[in-house]
């Protein structure tokens, strides 16, 4: 049975500043959704709120995967339910080898009931699997022995996110500007990688400003965010149009959301405390 990720009337605040003001979204396994919108419209906030970042406070609404109330779970529990966030800015964890980190992750995701200290997945098969996933993504096997994201270039970090996606095989993947800051070769590698991974078992939400990622991964749905709401939903053609013509026409069609967006942008300028991730 195909699973469904259901977001209903989601309101999210960061440090008491409302960012999302009622987001509705449904993603089924096998579907690709593009999420677009100007800076500060709330795209990354949605991704972080779905993943369960403690700074993003849910003030109203609900998130479910099938019958499971995701809001009841911490980020680890959500990941074990098959939710994956590819970070826009992956963190560095000094001293922790990629292979060791991923072995813990894979063990937990595949055996969601696993407690710390219980067995990890067997080394041999894990190594083999890791090596072949790395090969598919054109990664040097030496990467497995490096410390997670330490000294990685922007492209290497993003590739590392895709490698984790490949190993963890989530039901729902959220890609937060995975294509930003990459040269065209790197975008191609990431796009092809995602294309190979996203099949009928994976629902994907691609947050992007660009079109390249969408060329390889044609969205079934395109959503436009403005002022903390999804104001329009269309198909791949909408993504193309937005990319070509920008958001002016969207603002015209949704004057109230555009005004709220403008106010939010202004208060951000006045109050530097609002995190840039929003």
């Amino acid at each position: 049975m195909s699973s469904i990720l259901k977001v209903k009337d989601l309101h999210v605040s960061v440090e008491e500043t409302p960012i999302l003001r009622g987001v509705d979204l449904e993603i089924k396994q096998g579907e690709i959704h593009a999420l677009m919108g100007p800076n500060g419209s709330g795209k990354s906030t949605l991704a972080y709120a779905l993943a369960g970042h403690p700074k993003y406070e849910i003030t109203k609404g609900s998130i479910h995967i099938d019958d499971v109330d995701i809001l009841e779970l911490d980020p680890s529990g959500r990941a074990r339910q098959g939710l994956f966030l590819a970070f826009q800015y992956p963190v560095t964890i000094p001293g922790v080898k990629v292979a060791d980190f991923l072995r813990h992750a894979v063990s937990n995701i595949r055996n969601p009931e696993r407690k710390e200290g219980e067995g990890l997945i067997p080394m041999r098969e894990y190594r083999k699997e890791l090596r072949s996933r790395m090969e598919e993504l054109g990664m040097d096997p030496e990467f497995a022995r490096r410390y997670l994201n330490e000294g990685f270039s922007g492209g290497e970090k993003k590739r590392m996110e895709i490698l984790q996606l490949a190993m963890l095989q989530p039901r729902f993947a959220l890609l937060d500007e995975t294509d930003s800051g990459l040269d065209s070769d790197a975008v191609r590698v990431v796009s092809e990688g995602l294309n190979r991974l996203a099949g009928s078992e994976m629902g994907v939400l691609i947050i992007t400003h660009h079109e390249r990622l969408l060329e390889f991964n044609k969205p079934h749905f395109t959503h436009v965010m403005l002022g903390g709401r999804i104001v329009e939903t269309g198909d791949a053609a909408l993504a193309h149009e937005l990319h070509a013509n920008g958001y002016a026409s969207v603002r015209e069609r949704h004057p109230q959301a555009a005004q709220e967006q403008q106010q939010a942008d202004q208060s951000k300028v006045e109050n530097q405390e609002v995190p840039s991730g929003a």
Binding site: P75, A79, F87, H104
Partner: peptide, 12 residues
């Protein structure tokens, strides 16, 4: 947060 997003418990 990053580690937890990969299924590690907070303690782990």
């Amino acid at each position: 947060f990053y580690c937890m997003c990969r299924g590690l418990s907070r303690f782990e």
